[in-house]
Design a binder for these strands. Structure first.
Lengths: 322, 322
DNA sequence: CTGAAAGCGCTTACAG
DNA sequence: CTGAAAGCGCTTACAG
C-alpha cells in the first residue's frame, strides 16, 4: 500500500505544468505528441491514479449512483436485475453505492444526506407507500423509482406491468379447464390483482381471494389450508416462492399438482424450472427495464421517465394442457 | 432539487466564521451554547448537508467500503451475508460501493483505480485463484478476502471452515447406515473435500467423487446419472442448489429420497427447509463472519486478520435416522 | 500548443 | 471560546 502519486507529481516528473499533464492524461485539448508520451510514461512510472474525491468535488459529478434496496429486491429475481444494472452501468463508467431501505423516514433521510456530494442520482428499489415525499424535496439528488411504489406524480419511475403477465397466467389456468381459481395475494405486492380480475371477468368467473402475510415459502405453505377449504382447483400466487411453499403443503396433504390443483407463480425464480412439477410463472422484462434505468442515469436532458413494461407468462407443467 | 447550502452559507447566516460553524455542527471543540444553537438553527433553515466529496478529499477518509462481488456471492446465502454486512456497516456510518468481479485482471485493476480517492478499503467477495496479486500491490487500497481464494500470504481474510460442516454431514450420513457415499463437487468450491474425506476415513470408507461443472440446480440434476451409475446410497453436494436439482432428477427416475439415496447439501438455502423431503444442509457462520469483517473495517491498528470460522450441520429429513 | 491562477467545500493546524 | 489561513487533488476558465 503506497501513497498514491498526484497529478502534480506526474507533471513534475515529465517537466510540464499540471494543466498540460491533465490534458494529456484525460485527452482534453491538444498536447504535442512527444510531450504527451513523456507524460503518459511518467504516469505509468509513478503509478498515477486520479483521485475520485477531488475530481467529484471540482467537476461536481461523481459517476456514482445510489441504490436504495427494499425487501422486494432481496429475491432472486430482484438480485438478477440489480446485478444486470450494475454491470450495465459499469460499462458506462458508473458505480453503485448501495444502502438497505431503512424502516423509517428519518433514517432514510439520514442515509441520503450522508450521500450528498458523492451521489447525485438515486434509484429506489423499494419504497414505503405510507411515507411522505417531503423528505426527498429538500435533498439535492435526482430520484428514480424502480419497480416500487412511487410517492407522487412528479417522480420518475420504471416498472413491470404485472397485470399483463398475471392475466396471461389466469387465462391459461381457465383454458386448462379450471373454474375455482384462487389468488393468494399480499397487499404490498402491487399490480397483479388487476390482471387476475380482468382475466377472470373475461370468462365470467369470480376469483377466490386469499390474503397472505408475506411473499415467502412459508407464506405459500401457510395458505394451503385456505386454498383447500375454498375448494380451489387452481391457484395464482403473487410469487414463485409462495407457490413452491404450497408445493410442500400439497405434498404433505396428498394433493396432486396439477391434477387436483393447477398452480402459477410470479418472478421466474430459477427453482421453479426444477420443481416437481415444473412451475408456470411470469417473468419480468429484465433487459428492457435495466435499459430504461440506464437511459435515465445517462440522460443529461433529464426528460421525465414514466415507463411501464409488460411481463410475460412462462408456461410449464404446473398448468396442464386441457 | 435545490442547490445545496455550504458550510460558508451557514456560517454567514449565523454571523460566525466557517471554522466555528464547523465546530458546532460536528461537535469538535468548544462553542458557546447560545452560538451553537444559532448555528444549528441556520443549518436547519438552509437545509445544510455536508458535501461528502469535499470531506473525503480533505480528511482523506470517505467511510466508503468497496465490495467486489463474485459469482459465489450471487446465491441466497451470499446475498444474506452481504445484506447483513451492509446493515451492520451502515450502523457504523460506513457505506458500500459494489462492483461485480470482472472476468479479467485488467478490468479489475481498472475498477479499483476508478475507486481511488473514494474507497480506501476493499472487500473481495470473490477472486480468481489464477490471478496474480501484483495488480493489488500498486494500488493504494487495503484489501480483505471474504470467503474466497486468497492470492497470497500477506493478505487478510475471513473464511468459513467448510470442512467442519461437511465432515458433520458425511458423519451423519454414515451413522444413518449408508456406505456408498458420493461427493458431487465443483473444483472451484473449496474446503468441503477435506471434511468429506476425513469423515469417511474415520469409518474406513472411500468416497465416490463426482465432478460437476457448476454449483447450480441444473448441475445437480445433471449429476443424477453418475450418482445412480456409481450405486450411491448417499450423496453430499457442494451446494443446496445442486442437491435440489438432484431432487428433480430423483423424481423423474422414481428414486426415493432418503429411502434409496440420502442427501445433504451446503449453504442453508431457505428452499431446503420446504423441499420434499426437507434438505439437510450446512450453514455458514453468518453473524460471526460479518462481525469479523466489520472489525477489520473499523480497526485503525490494521492488525492482520486471518479468521477461519466453523460451519455447522442442520439435520433434516433427507438424512434418515438409522 | 502550454501555463499560472482560481476554486470546488470541506478539515486541519495554528494563533489569539 | 473564536477566527484567518492553508491545503486536500483535481478541473475550469482565462491568457498567452
Amino acid at each position: 500500500m503506497k501513497q498514491a502519486a498526484t497529478l502534480k507529481d506526474v507533471a513534475d516528473a515529465a517537466g510540464v505544468s499540471i494543466r498540460t499533464a491533465g490534458r494529456a492524461l484525460r485527452n482534453d485539448g491538444p498536447v504535442k505528441a512527444q510531450v504527451a508520451e513523456r507524460i503518459r510514461a511518467a504516469a505509468r512510472e509513478l503509478n498515477y491514479v486520479p483521485n475520485a474525491a477531488a475530481r467529484s468535488l471540482r467537476s461536481r459529478s461523481s459517476r456514482i449512483i445510489g441504490a436504495v434496496i427494499g425487501e422486494n429486491f432481496r429475491t432472486e429475481a430482484g438480485q438478477r436485475r440489480l446485478a444486470l444494472l450494475e454491470s450495465t452501468l459499469r460499462e458506462q463508467n458508473f458505480h453503485i453505492l448501495i444502502g438497505a431501505l431503512p424502516t423509517g423516514e428519518r433514517a432514510l433521510s439520514a442515509l441520503l444526506r450522508d450521500w450528498t456530494g458523492i451521489v447525485e442520482q438515486v434509484i429506489f428499489l423499494g419504497w414505503n407507500p405510507e411515507w411522505n415525499a417531503e423528505i426527498l424535496e429538500c435533498l439535492p439528488q435526482r430520484f428514480l423509482f424502480f419497480d416500487c411504489p412511487v410517492p407522487g406524480e412528479k417522480y420518475d419511475f420504471v416498472r413491470t406491468d404485472r397485470a399483463s403477465g398475471a392475466a396471461a397466467a389466469v387465462t391459461a389456468l381457465i383454458a386448462s379447464g379450471r373454474r375455482q381459481i384462487a389468488h393468494v395475494f399480499n397487499r404490498f405486492a402491487q399490480g397483479r390483482q388487476a390482471g387476475v380480475e380482468q382475466a377472470a371477468a373475461a370468462e365470467k368467473l369470480r376469483i377466490i381471494p386469499i390474503e397472505s402475510d408475506g411473499l415467502e415459502l412459508r407464506d405459500g405453505f401457510n395458505s394451503g389450508a385456505a386454498i383447500v377449504a375454498a375448494g380451489a382447483d387452481a391457484v395464482f400466487f403473487d410469487t414463485d416462492r409462495m407457490a413452491l411453499g404450497f408445493y410442500r403443503y400439497a405434498h404433505e396433504h396428498g394433493i396432486s399438482i396439477p391434477g387436483e390443483i393447477a398452480v402459477a407463480g410470479f418472478d421466474d425464480d430459477s427453482a421453479g424450472a426444477y420443481a416437481i412439477p415444473t412451475l408456470s410463472t411470469v417473468a419480468h422484462p429484465d433487459l428492457d427495464a435495466v435499459r430504461c434505468v440506464v437511459d435515465w442515469v445517462t440522460d443529461r436532458e433529464r426528460a421525465p421517465v414514466r415507463k411501464v413494461l409488460p411481463s410475460r407468462l412462462i408456461r410449464r407443467e404446473s398448468i396442464p394442457h386441457e
